[in-house]
Design a protein around this nucleic acid. Structure first.
Lengths: 240, 240
DNA sequence: GCTTCCATTGCGGAAACCCGCAGGCGGAAC
DNA sequence: GTTCCGCCTGCGGGTTTCCGCAATGGAAGC
């Protein structure tokens, strides 16, 4: 069995390496990549059976790399390994998993024991292993109470790129009024309607930008995510 | 000599610990804290001569902790140790350094050798040691060409919190027109004026929110910074 | 003193944004 | 079938934001 570790931080890489050597003696060859692009190359040139993938990496983040890898090898088993259980990451990963693919999502704070268990579960027994806290985020984002619908999340990513209503309506093929309607619901769910309005000054917050702040601080969005949304937007602009 | 390591990631903490033991044999006691609040407590209860401070930590980031520590011990020597040379961090640190204090700013990608050199420089020889790349950011933000003036940066933080023009004008004690003037200059420096405008759709971007995206992706702002600006804003709102 | 540069201010208007109301559509549940 | 419910749409209008133009005042430099 050949595995690949994709992780930019040399310390974490070394830790992961020894952990894997202990947990998976059946691993013959252990490749390493320090960014997403390098990982993609190795997967294409070598024979890889499974991947450890860090999500936070400078340039070419883990999600993009995984998307490209799954495009070529839909069967590839990937264990994501992340600092945070941010909704942006969880959603980002969930969006690109091919149906039937085996994958896992583990936090870096997990013990070596948990890591070993997850690794064996995924790479040996072909089972999906999702960290408990991550699972919590997933569920919360599935039931509509606390979480946003896809439509609302979509419009959130669009305004996070700084698009105008009109541009969004063109991109998503709905009327500008539809965009505003989505926005209104988004604002409500983020709790902006009952936000501060000072007697002298009037409303203190501009909903549109405030939504961004709140989304960022709640982990609905993160800066890496923005970068990849930006690329999708550029593709669309080029085609239009 | 008693030193304190403030770092949430156990791996990095362990690495730092052995590195310090090698580089600074004159260190008697080596304390550890895994977040800013704990660090502040230790500094207040023990006798500490110098601190390694991680900047990215969940809750109570390094800048806030350092601010509080320097408020009580303006002589404290602090070596900041960060993943990124983001302008938001560099500016954040520079804003709170008491005049005459000894401090350093090192990237985590630095070699152990550089780390040892910096540690000796700061804690033994009382010299400020700033990483080269960080120094680059500092200079760029000092000369007005590429960087923003204080006024522009201030208004950037305000819109990043989602404030309206009127609220900003009240807070900064200038007219709303003044706010808009600052904003206009900010937009220019971020390059939003010559941005995409599509023939069918018209302007694709809303300057106000687009400014946020650009500032975030360029590292002028970051999410930790937002959290502490938010607290300042709440203080002001409470007083008002 | 004069000029230059910068930040600020008022005015005014075009555009963008926020939102209540009313209505239409399709899918899920009963 | 009926009833919900979420989502989209048009209309209308109130508010906010963006920005050009012109004028003021202060600081720095000749």
């Amino acid at each position: 069995m050949n595995l690949l570790i994709t992780e930019d931080d040399p310390l974490h890489r070394a830790f992961l390496k020894t952990a894997v050597e202990n947990a998976l003696p059946e691993c013959d060859q252990l490749y390493e990549a320090e960014n997403g692009a390098a990982a993609v190359e190795i997967v294409k040139s070598e024979t890889i059976d499974g991947i450890f993938m860090d999500l936070q990496m400078p340039k070419s983040n883990g999600v993009d790399a995984a998307k490209e890898i799954w495009r070529c090898f839909p069967e590839m088993r990937i264990l994501f390994w992340s600092n945070y259980a941010d909704e942006a990451y969880v959603r980002g990963v969930a969006r690109i998993v091919p149906s039937g693919a085996v994958y896992g999502y583990l936090l870096k704070s997990a013990s070596e024991e948990r890591l070993a268990f997850a690794a064996r579960g995924i790479f040996v027994q072909d089972q999906c292993i999702i960290d408990r806290e991550v699972r919590g985020v997933q569920q919360r984002s599935e039931n509509t109470l606390e979480g946003l619908t896809d439509a609302e999340f979509e419009v959130l990513t669009d305004i996070s790129l700084g698009m105008t209503d009109k541009a969004i309506s063109a991109r998503r093929k709905i009327s500008t009024r539809g965009v505003q309607s989505r926005l209104k619901h988004l604002y409500e769910k983020l709790g902006l309607n009952r936000s501060v309005t000072h007697s002298d000054i009037g409303p203190v917050f501009n909903s549109r930008t405030r939504a961004l702040t709140v989304a960022l601080s709640r982990g609905l969005l993160n800066v890496d995510g923005l970068a990849s949304y930006e690329m999708e937007l550029e593709d669309w602009l080029a085609k239009k």
